[in-house]
Design a protein around this nucleic acid. Structure first.
Lengths: 230, 230
DNA sequence: CAGTAAAAGTGAACACGTTCAACTTGCACT
DNA sequence: AGTGCAAGTTGAACGTGTTCACTTTTACTG
């Protein structure tokens, strides 16, 4: 498990304490008031440090968001460990893992939109495809590689190579849908997850059919070319 | 052709002049310095109005971005008119229309990332799925409905209904890719467009195959359910 | 033409994210 | 104990987007 550092990690005990206090304060305030209504001054005050100190540990308010992503990612990893150990059917693994994403993030739904938007900005180096998010991105892709590898599904090599990246993209799509979902208990998102994971596994089974062979090659070529550029 | 108003339109000649001056100044400054480096004060100054006046016509800096989208949309519509009149092959129409999007937007590539990110924010009512962007969204979807309808392709009714919305989504995906594309002459994006439009048309042809029937129904059901929620 | 209400226009003031130069703390090494 | 230096800390100051109470201009009516 890698260290979830966004900027340079603290080098002293005191530093670690301050950094944690700042992030904890930020998370608490995001929950209480939402992202935009939470000011850096309020975060610093609640954390018991000065405004300047906050910027010593987090280069910007957005960096607090990236740290938040790390936080939820770790919650997610912990949540799915039992499932991944027990279940070996690909569809069930996929469904469970993606459902766990939105269950994990549910407490943060109210401010997820503001947070997602901030970091989705292509101009920011913190955007999902950008430099500063690479460590997290790689870890999530690795997670999905494990979901596929640990299943009893037998996939062609070319698909198995690109699938984890595609599933990472798919997870982002689900999260985007979830942000807009105002249904009770987020049932619509859960339903979409069930249907799409099923569909994905079904299409994977169909990919070997002669009629789809050509399209499959083209799709994978496209995915490789796109992934190479990012 | 609808009026491209973002907030309430001006009611006097003088108002129209001011509004246009503000937008023109904004566009010029975005081109010169980029989006973030352009301040509302600089826009007001170049437009020859006061800071407060800018906010009389555009409720926020983001609203200037939405107006910018209207602007490029109109350029796009004008650019594709000849093609749509002449060409009736669906693949060619689609390729031409999507290529025209990025050709139209090419002069703005440098600041497109900042602009896209600002308005993609799910927390903003200006986001592509949101209330304030509805008029533009509907118009683009209508444009793609025309692309499909004016072609000689014979599509099943259920697909024809949902396809325009999917193509609008597809266009946003292409734009997102284009933003990150740093290749010379944006050749990578053009290549991706050629391949994906071909692929789309091919898959549409395959949708009637018995093996895909089930998946097709599920995909369309999904699309309908997702579109209904937005 | 006078009156008036809506539209257009103004700039000072506010709160925010961020920067920075100066200050304090604590550890390593002699 | 003393010294040096990196890490940690500070809050005033800057520039930004945005708001608002107010003034000026415009268009229309009796």
């Amino acid at each position: 498990m890698s260290i979830s550092s966004v900027t340079e990690p603290p080098k002293t005990k005191r530093g670690e304490t301050s950094r944690a206090a700042i992030f904890d304060a930020a998370l608490a305030l995001f929950l209480e008031r939402g992202y935009e209504a939470t000011t850096m001054r309020a975060i610093a005050e609640r954390a018991g440090v000065s405004l300047g100190s906050s910027y010593h540990y987090f280069a910007s308010k957005e960096h607090l968001v990236l740290e938040f992503y790390w936080h939820t990612h770790q919650l997610h990893v912990a949540a799915i460990a039992p499932l991944l150990a027990r279940e070996h059917d690909l569809a069930a693994r996929l469904r469970g893992v993606v459902r766990a994403v939105i269950v994990t993030c549910e407490p943060f739904h109210a401010f997820a939109g503001a947070i997602f938007g901030t970091v989705a900005n292509p101009a920011s180096p913190l955007n999902p495809f950008g430099r500063e998010a690479k460590a997290l991105r790689d870890e999530v892709i690795e997670l999905y590689a494990g979901v596929v590898k640990g299943s009893d599904a037998r996939l062609p090599a070319d698909i198995a190579t690109e699938l984890p990246t595609l599933l990472w993209l798919y997870q982002m799509g689900i999260l985007y849908f979830w942000i807009f979902d105002r249904s009770q208990g987020r049932l619509r998102t859960l339903d979409v997850i069930d249907q799409t994971t099923d569909l994905i596994v079904r299409l994977l089974g169909l990919a070997n059919l002669p009629v789809l062979r050509g399209s499959r090659k083209r799709v994978l070529g496209l995915v490789r070319s796109i992934a190479a550029g990012a």
